[in-house]
Computed example of a mutant assay.
Amino acid sequence: MSSREPTLADVAQLAGVSPTTVSRVLNNRGYLSEKTKRGVADAIATLGYRPNSLARALHGKSTQTVGLIVPAVSLPFFGELAVEVENALAEAGYRILICNSMGRAEREREYLSLLVGNRVDGIISGAHNEGLNEYDTIRMPLVTIDRELSPSIPNVRCANRDAGAMATRALIEAGRRHPLLLTSRSGPRNLREAGYRAEVARAGLEPRIVTVPFDTPIPQRFALVQGSLDEARAQAPIDGVFATDDLAAAEVLEWARSRSLSVPGDLSVIGFDGTETMRRALPHLATIRQPIAQIARAAVDILLGQMRGTLPRPIDEAGDNSSPTLEFAGTLVQGRSLSL
């Protein structure tokens, strides 16, 4: 048995037809008898032949493949997002290549180069690294999820500002007068923080923000969360925490347990994401549920529109091509971590 991958020529030889005929069968081009189609299909099955997607791309044909860049599918939100994106693409006849950036800009650059080099039909980017100029040169269909790269690139996300205000308001309505925000990065791009700030200002309270970078290695992360919360609590009282993702909220709950703080007696906690994984693990955690399926399918619909030519691509040299951000509302999920 040969150790090399079978080629199109091998298929043609076994089927007793020309390589051109095999190519026509694979691309469903022109009239072909059922006998010929069956013969080629049988030869493909016998040899285990796999069409070369890169070769198809070099001939200007679709590879039927889309790249998805996320921080890590091990994170519940991005794992469930990847599943929903994959399902939506599969329904349209596309496969998916999932790239985990692990929160590192250089790794995202490498994956972006890989996807472009292999001529995928489009890219969906949900990674959180900033300052990657490589996206400015991409001419292929491109959509982002919860990431602002450029006014010309469609961005699909939860209505983060409103959802952040909703989470903060829930803490205040639970009687909390010293609510703290635990997030990965503070600044004007953090819309959940903007919602938190607006709501504490409306209630006449002082904003307090603790940051733990997203790419903090797991072995060091919990110690950093503990230390940051200890320091904040030493400076002023804390009676509520809004964590901008559910994993961070879980760390807050563990910190409270280790410091003999009762939840929700001494401390109310609310998270963000509301994935099925975290709902099963922490059913008592109050959170803001993101509409993951809606976000994923909307991103895929926009990308398919770009690929089919019914929607403009991100960079259109003919003129301005600004794309509005598409937002979906979050939902408050009550839990015992918020109030009894």
Rank of each mutant, 00 (worst) to 15 (best):
P314L: 02
V210L: 13
N52P: 13
A250S: 10
H59M: 12
D10M: 06
V22K: 01
L332T: 10
I302L: 15
S74E: 13
E254F: 14
V25R: 00
D245M: 14
L191K: 14
L253Q: 03
A249Y: 04
S125K: 03
I145N: 03
E108C: 05
I145R: 00
E193N: 03
V25Y: 00
P19F: 00
R197M: 08
A92R: 13
G48N: 13
L229V: 03
P151G: 12
S53N: 14
R109F: 05
Q294M: 13
D42G: 07
L180Q: 01
S33Y: 02
G265V: 01
R336W: 02
A90Q: 13
D301R: 13
T137D: 08
L180I: 02
A256K: 08
E110M: 04
G187N: 08
L282V: 07
Y111A: 10
A281Q: 15
I96H: 04
D266I: 09
S268G: 14
V225M: 04
Y94R: 11
L97V: 14
I209M: 01
L285S: 10
E206V: 13
R24K: 14
A163G: 14
T211F: 07
A43H: 04
S101Q: 02
S74G: 08
M102D: 11
Q220N: 13
E199G: 10
S125C: 09
L338R: 09
E80I: 07
N160I: 06
L112Q: 04
A170N: 01
E276G: 10
P76Y: 05
P217F: 10
Q235H: 13
L229K: 00
S184G: 07
T216L: 09
Y135V: 01
D246Q: 07
L311P: 05
D316G: 14
T36Q: 05
L26T: 06
L14V: 08
E80N: 05
P179R: 00
S74L: 08
S323V: 04
G164E: 12
P213M: 01
N28C: 10
P283R: 11
S268I: 09
Y111G: 01
W255Y: 15
S323E: 06
R313G: 15
T211I: 06
G131Y: 05
R139S: 15
G227P: 06
S33P: 06
R280N: 12
A90H: 11
R176M: 06
R109C: 09
R177S: 15
S260E: 05
L112F: 09
S33C: 15
G103W: 01
V11T: 07
L205F: 06
P291T: 05
T183D: 10
